[in-house]
Computed example of a mutant assay.
Amino acid sequence: MTELQDLQAESKMVVIIDTRTPGQWKNAKDKIPGAIRINSQSDLQKLKADIPPDTEIVTYCT
């Protein structure tokens, strides 16, 4: 978490990906604002194709 906060404090481009299942995500009380939930590896590949190469990608499941 500290590394993510440091990246954000440095104003680096960061994409946060929530990797929980749909049910886990729906029932979760805590979610990182702005996080993108993906369903599959192919969704991740599509996302990676749409963001600049120097973008930090952070994944989480909690």
Rank of each mutant, 00 (worst) to 15 (best):
Q8W: 07
V15D: 08
G23P: 01
I38W: 04
Q41I: 14
L44K: 01
S42C: 06
D43N: 01
N39I: 11
D50H: 09
P22E: 02
P33N: 00
S11P: 03
R20H: 06
T19F: 02
K26T: 13
Q45D: 15
I38M: 12
K31W: 06
E3K: 08
Y60M: 10
S42V: 12
Q5G: 02
T2I: 02
G34L: 05
I32G: 00
D18M: 07
T19S: 09
I36Y: 08
D30A: 12
S40H: 07
T55W: 04
G23D: 14
P33T: 05
R37K: 11
K48M: 15
I16W: 02
I17C: 10
D18A: 03
I32D: 09
R20Q: 14
A35M: 02
L44P: 05
V15N: 00
D18Q: 00
I17Y: 03
D18V: 07
C61V: 08
A9G: 06
A35W: 11
C61I: 04
S42I: 14
M13W: 03
P52T: 11
K31V: 05
K26N: 14
I32A: 04
T59H: 05
A9H: 04
T59S: 10
Q8G: 09
D50V: 03
S40K: 09
P52W: 05
Q5P: 06
S11M: 04
A9D: 14
G34N: 02
N39T: 07
I32W: 07
T2Q: 00
L44W: 05
Q24G: 02
T59C: 11
Y60W: 05
W25D: 11
R37I: 10
V58W: 10
E10W: 07
D18I: 01
N39A: 09
N39M: 13
S42E: 15
K29E: 15
M1A: 12
D43K: 09
Q24F: 06
V15R: 06
A35F: 00
L7G: 04
G23T: 09
Q8R: 08
V58N: 01
T21W: 07
G23F: 01
D50E: 15
D6P: 00
A35P: 05
D54G: 06
A28F: 13
L4G: 00
P53E: 15
E10F: 12
D43M: 01
L47V: 05
T2W: 06
G34W: 03
Q5D: 05
G23I: 01
G23Q: 05
I51R: 08
I32Q: 08
Q45A: 14
I36M: 04
K12N: 12
C61Y: 11
V58K: 07
A28I: 15
A9V: 11
Q24A: 02
T55M: 00
Q41S: 15
I32C: 00
V58R: 02
T21E: 13
K26I: 09
L44M: 11
K12E: 13
R37S: 14
D6M: 04
K48N: 12
D43V: 03
